[in-house]
Design a protein around this nucleic acid. Structure first.
Length: 473
DNA sequence: GGCCCTTTGAAGAAC
DNA sequence: GTTCTTCAAAGGGCC
């Protein structure tokens, strides 16, 4: 597996935005690649059928066989050259070459400061920012321009890829540039508002209708609740300096990942932190409404899964607490039990901050719709098998893009939830959707009657000392 | 209604 | 340091 940064893991200091673009030249290669991928898909589909119909003791599914032959360096060089050439054509000053060879990222110096030396905004950047950060005041505070921007935004979901479809005509599938440019990479996804046209849209457009004023204006009122929205939590990002006209509107470090609605990729919540006073975030005055998140949840009103906007946020899953049962049992509980139940209840109420998606998850989210469209399979398990094979079939450069996305996502997650730990979501801590532990099941399998046969078959009767415990019984 | 399946990767726990 | 476990997404299938 390709590891970025020499496998050095997260580098919080790395703040370079790496955006991958593919021009039409590469698109041709992509087409041929897609055709091969479709062949692979057909193979996968047939193999899936075969695998399901035949015994799976065959080793035909070995990693070596699944992986396509390694791609020639010439192809990669060609791709790289194509990318670089495309980068040069995109914008004379906005893009620059990858920082190191063999890495197909086009560096955007700082999308939060996409200003030309004279202080004006690069046209491409302006378009880019309008798409990537629709709430960003790309016109340096001009209300008219903001209104124009707002009006120009189509209420149709098609606006999501609008200008970039023009930049990349004929690109029909969910290719990588669309992946990056259309903000379809969800860091968290709204579980109930998956866009019908693209499953990669994180949030529903209903919170960002053309009629909604930009959230940085005072008139930023949630259409549902009528509650004024506080500034975007990403305002507190220390990664991107303020630029003229964007004071107080620091774009998200993953601005190109942030959904168009401008909602935070990760919500600031009122609970779930083990460290109530994170220091990684610098809180400005506008973040005062978020201060409640800095305090233990018992000191603040129980917002639970409510985002600071006052609306439930998709990234937070609050477990369903059956309070009725607990209340009905109060009479039968003694005081200590009652307190325990209360504590447990509070624990259950803590919002569930999901793990950041890893590279493969990001890839899956992008490619799932494509695979579903290409084949008749609907079962996610089968789809995921295909996606897993495709993932292995990706070149290192292609995978590296997703690793980089995942790295940025982890960085963002760390920024927003300094005290969060993956352990918080373990079944023991998070009492919401409690999954049956797979290992428990497997351990149970070890206790079944077939287990002794396994050890007996494996070690034989003369090596019973090697048998596992259950088998030795 | 909730878990399983299935994938890879990240992170934490356990040894 | 290595190995194991859990969870992240997805949605049809199953109990």
């Amino acid at each position: 597996m390709p590891q970025l940064n020499g496998g050095g893991g997260d580098d919080l200091g790395a703040n370079d935005e790496m955006i991958s673009f593919k021009d039409e030249g590469e698109q041709e290669e992509k087409i041929s690649e897609n055709s091969s991928a479709e062949r692979d898909l057909a193979d996968v589909k047939s193999s899936l059928v075969n695998e399901s119909e035949t015994n799976q003791n065959s080793s035909s599914d070995s990693e070596a066989e699944r992986r396509p032959p390694p791609r020639s360096e010439s192809f990669r060089d060609k791709t790289r050259e194509s990318l670089e050439e495309a980068a040069k054509r995109q914008d004379g000053g906005l893009f620059k070459s990858p920082p190191y060879p063999g890495y197909p990222f086009i560096m955007i110096p700082d999308l939060t400061s996409p200003y030309l030396p004279n202080g004006s905004l690069s046209p491409t950047a302006r378009t880019y920012l309008q798409m990537k950060w629709p709430l960003l005041d790309v016109q340096a505070g001009s209300l008219q321009s903001r209104q124009a921007l707002k009006d120009a935004r189509s209420p149709s979901p098609a606006h999501i890829v609008g200008p970039f479809c023009l930049e990349f005509p004929g690109q029909a599938d969910l290719s990588l540039h669309q992946f990056h440019l259309s903000n379809k990479v969800p860091v968290v996804q709204h579980p109930h508002h998956v866009h019908p046209l693209t499953p990669l849209i994180t949030y529903s457009n209903e919170h960002f209708t053309p009629g909604n004023p930009p959230p940085h204006l005072q008139a930023d009122v949630d259409p549902k609740t009528g509650i004024p929205r506080p500034p975007h939590p990403s305002d507190i990002s220390p990664y991107y300096p303020l630029s003229p006209g964007t004071v107080g509107q620091i774009p998200h470090p993953l601005g190109w990942l942030v959904p168009q609605q401008g909602q935070p990729v990760y919500p600031i919540t009122t609970g779930g932190f083990r460290h109530p006073y994170p220091t990684a975030l610098t809180v400005n005055a506008s973040m005062s409404s978020l201060l409640s998140s800095r305090f233990p949840h018992h000191m603040v009103p129980p917002h639970h899964s409510l985002h600071t906007t006052g609306i439930p946020h998709p990234a937070i899953v609050t477990s369903n607490v059956k309070q009725e049962s607990s209340h009905s049992d109060i009479g039968s509980l003694n005081s200590s039990k009652h307190q325990d139940a209360k504590k447990e209840e509070e624990k259950k109420k803590q919002p569930h901050i999901k793990k950041p998606l890893n590279a493969f998850m990001l890839y899956m989210k992008e490619m799932r719709a494509k695979v579903v469209a290409e084949c008749t399979l609907k079962e996610s398990a089968a789809i995921n098998q295909i996606l897993g094979r495709r993932w292995h079939a990706l070149s290192r450069e292609e995978q590296a893009k997703y690793y980089e996305l995942a790295r940025k996502e982890r960085q963002l997650h760390m920024q927003l939830y300094p005290g969060w730990s993956a352990r918080d979501n373990y079944a023991g801590n998070y009492q919401g959707k409690k999954k049956k532990r797979k290992r428990e099941k497997q351990a149970g399998e070890g206790n079944d009657l077939s287990a002794p046969k396994k050890c007996r078959a494996r070690f034989g009767l003369d090596q019973q000392n090697n048998w596992c415990g259950p088998c030795s019984l």
